[in-house]
Simulated scan of single mutants.
Amino acid sequence: MIYHVMLEPWMRAENGVLKGGPIGIGMDAVTTSPTSKVSGSLEALGIIAFVHCYSRILIEIQDTIKAPPPPESKVMKLATSIGVAVTTFLYLLFGFMGYAALGDATPGNLLAGLGFYEPYWVVDIANVAIIVHLAVAYQVYCRPIYDFVERYAARRWPESSYVTREFHVLVLRSSYKLNLFRATWRTAFVVTTTVAAVLLPFFHDVVALVGALGFWPLCVYIPVEMYVTQKKVLRWSPLWVWLQILSLGCLFVCLAAMAASIVGIITIHKK
């Protein structure tokens, strides 16, 4: 219903055709059975979970905000509300527009799946935007992993100069600290993940799988348990029961999305 209300006037004014439908992809299109249609829907939930799985870096970002006024909790609450609202609106808008324009033939990757390269400047701008977005997001999302490994190595080998010693490097009259372990380990991590991503032929299935794996423990279970502990919510109180229902519901959805993603990976691998 939202799909038709938002896009039907625009699409009919543009080319007179509104492709797709409110029930999604038909049985005679990409999917061939109700089972595969359900699997595709669950896989889409995994991708949505991946898009909104930002709790793992929320505390990292909050630590960079200076103390009051105003307190960082209020700043992050406002930033989170605005960020989630804008992200949800843009993704829904792009998804609706792509489906309305292409219908059941909509590819998973609009840039690579349509096979068009004209006008070339539009494609180039889109690719540059993706590179900038992924380069920044990669650094932010990997920061907790970097910190965890480097702190563990420092505790495990405190006497190793390779792990703990820092060198001062002068670049353009500016001095920077260089740690050999940090430089080599981060480089190896980036190279490994990049090569693995290039070799994987099923992008969306992997994204859905990663989203399903990380969403419940990092974005639901841990925040819920932290809230229960901090607010001292009584066990079996209405609020506690509701939070547990929410957590279990998200767990079941993530498990279903994970299973659908694995099925999708196996299906593509057999082709």
Rank of each mutant, 00 (worst) to 15 (best):
M11W: 06
G16L: 07
G20N: 02
G21F: 02
I23H: 04
I25R: 05
V30C: 11
T31S: 08
T32F: 11
T32E: 11
K37S: 01
K37A: 07
S39Y: 05
S41R: 15
L42T: 02
A44E: 03
L45P: 00
I48Q: 14
I48N: 12
H52G: 12
S55T: 04
L58N: 07
Q62L: 04
K66Y: 10
A67H: 14
P70C: 14
P71D: 15
E72G: 09
K74M: 03
V75Y: 04
T80A: 06
L90G: 02
M97H: 14
A100R: 01
A101E: 06
D104H: 05
G108S: 09
G108F: 07
A112E: 07
G113F: 03
Y117W: 13
W121D: 06
I125G: 14
V128I: 15
V128C: 12
I130W: 04
A135I: 02
A137H: 10
Q139L: 12
Y146E: 08
V149H: 13
W157E: 10
P158E: 01
P158S: 09
S161I: 13
Y162T: 11
F167L: 15
R182T: 00
R182W: 01
V195K: 10
V198M: 14
L199G: 08
L200W: 07
F203D: 02
H204C: 02
V210T: 07
G211H: 01
G214L: 07
G214S: 05
V220K: 00
V224H: 02
V224K: 00
Y227E: 14
V228K: 01
V228P: 00
S247C: 11
L248A: 11
C250W: 05
A256H: 03
M258Q: 03
M258W: 02
V263L: 08
I268F: 15
